[in-house]
Design a protein around this nucleic acid. Structure first.
Lengths: 344, 344
DNA sequence: GCGCGTTAGTAACACGTGTTAGTAGAAAGG
DNA sequence: CCTTTCTACTAACACGTGTTACTAACGCGC
């Protein structure tokens, strides 16, 4: 054991040809003439020796690492409680595997963002990167635009020229809110998924407001609250809404994960869903359909989003970036279950 | 823009020294004499030029990629619904970042396992790997023992000599079951977290049985059921248990994620927790404490597990693998909430 | 016999770094 | 003044691959 590494030189020597020939054959380079017999002998020898090309050497020579980065920009705690991450990773892995590409997960701490993006790009450890949940005050984003590494955002941000893949958060939130209005609700609260600097949060609140405005329902700012991704923040938000004295018969919670906590607060207040309060979520995480009652929510195609982002990024890496429509908006779907009922 | 890459040669030329000197200074190599002035000049020049060493070239030369792999061996669907993955990743990232190491997530499809592990190891893209949720029938594991890449398992497997980090699943399950017995329950069902080939599943069932045996409670095999990681499988298991005609007043579900579905089945049967059935879970995912009623469960230190695995792996990579105790067992904790009550 | 195109390859360089062996020059010791 | 030791570096090789420019051999038409 611990036997010496098998290199292409070993394969070449075994067959009695040059290393170049081995490389040409195994990479199946077009427009070059190698006799079929030699070709076969090389392939056989490579198999027999168990030759696997060294990824780093390939990367250095070809200037392609065959890896892309998934860059997370949230705190450790937020990553740990993110009910969404598995779907992103699953989607990414699926598409990446098809193209024989690896996924590097990286984490940029808030404080050192600027240098961190930069180093990642310059170190050339990856061929491109996918940014998740962009934030408005992320100064380093502008820097990224001028760095030469292909980048795709999951989630959009106004003012940035980076290509992105997203859903129409505003429209989706509008859809959810309109559903509640259609059931007769007029006093509706809103708990957004995250602090306002995360772009999806204000977008969803905007959709909420749009739906109200369209029906001439006055918007009460103190029925709007910003959570912070996790169940706990949802619990706190709902609790303060309930204690505020404002009356409401329905709540739009812009994240199922947050809704987990919000539900607990409603229950603690001895109220029932949907009899006392109608609740609608956002994301459709696996928990939603098994909740009690099953949660009506907006289905966000997380895996498809990740797959599209990955595909788009790979396109860019291969140089097809001339396409002008370098962004993609996927559809959401209202999943009606049993957590909302007509106002009595 | 798109300006030429800055290499150590550029830094060297700017200062007027050799590339070697630049390398020695920036890597802070011990036992070598470089004058303080030169040292400072090199550092200044590197900063001014924005020099970032090329990761692939470093990897090739030093034979360290400064990356470790997290290898997932489950199906795409199981990865997507894994409520546990975020904590693993969070834990890994935390420890990895401290050592300036990157995380590569890889996915080995069941069919091609043997070659896949092998290629990963041989391609030397990573310095070591962490295997999650090992399976008994994973033939490739034995192969891995003889390959020269450091490997740590999260979860244990009898007969394997690979170092691992795990909790004592049997003891933890015993603790959970004993708690139910202590409340007076005698007819207790068990839904395991996964199919029996995943080692944690039989271990937890064994703990369940141990607890019963110790109190001379007969074990009814048809009160034991194996789920498949996700809520849906928990729903199905619970449904079939309820329809089996067997009587039981409590259930030990060896995974909170599975318990999500099990709860739904109980509710559909018009039964209530904890009045009709006591329910105890395993893992303590974020949802558990906000569940209705809050779920009593066994807390599994997921992030600590990941951190320990990472630390152990890094130790091995650095060559401190002589230590005989190359495995670690972390403690679990019974978290008592409100989903269990004494039998009436 | 000679030019010419084709076939089947190869030598040599590039990629950007880490690292070892060695070397000028100065200081020290006798 | 010669030898030795130390300081402060550098030349050169290694890592394992991709790729371009070049060539030896051979057949073929004339």
């Amino acid at each position: 054991m611990q036997r010496k590494r098998v290199t292409s030189k070993d394969v070449a020597e075994m067959v009695g040809v040059s290393r170049t020939t081995v490389s040409l054959v195994l990479n199946d380079v077009k427009g070059i003439q190698i006799s079929p017999e030699t070709r076969q002998k090389v392939i056989d020898a490579a198999n027999e020796l168990g030759y696997v090309p060294d990824a780093t050497a390939q990367a250095l020579a070809s200037r392609r690492t065959k890896a892309i980065g998934l860059v997370l920009t949230r705190s450790q705690h937020h990553i740990a409680t993110d009910a969404f991450l598995p779907k992103i990773i699953s989607g990414l892995l699926t598409t990446a595997k098809k193209h024989n590409i690896r996924i590097l997960v990286d984490w940029v701490e808030t404080e050192h963002q600027e240098s961190a993006y930069f180093e990642l790009a310059r170190a050339k450890r990856i061929d491109g990167m996918i940014l998740s949940t962009p934030r408005l005050n992320d100064k380093a984003l502008k820097a990224l635009e001028s760095v030469d590494i292909p980048t795709v955002m999951m989630g959009s941000i106004t003012g940035s020229k980076l290509p992105f893949v997203d859903v129409d958060n505003t429209k989706a939130a509008e859809k959810a809110t309109s559903y509640l209005i259609g059931l007769g609700h007029r006093n509706i609260a809103c708990i957004s998924n995250a602090p306002p600097e995360y772009t999806a949060a204000p977008a969803r609140v905007a959709g909420f407001k749009n739906a109200l405005s369209r029906m001439d329902i006055p918007i009460k700012e103190n029925l709007i609250c910003y959570a912070d991704f996790d169940p706990e923040s949802g619990y706190e938000c709902m609790k303060s809404l309930l204690q505020s004295g404002e009356r409401f018969t329905a709540v739009f919670v812009a994240s199922d994960n947050v809704a987990i906590g919000a539900k607990a607060a409603i229950r603690e207040a001895n109220m029932h869903i949907p009899d006392d309060i109608s609740l609608i979520g956002f994301d459709d995480i696996p928990w939603a359909r098994y909740s009690d009652p099953p949660l009506t929510t907006i289905r966000l195609p997380a895996e498809a989003l990740a797959q599209s982002a990955c595909t788009l990024l790979l396109d860019m890496i291969q140089g097809n970036e001339t396409r002008q429509d370098n962004h993609l908006t996927l559809e959401t779907e209202l999943i009606i279950r049993k957590s909302c009922k007509p106002v009595s």
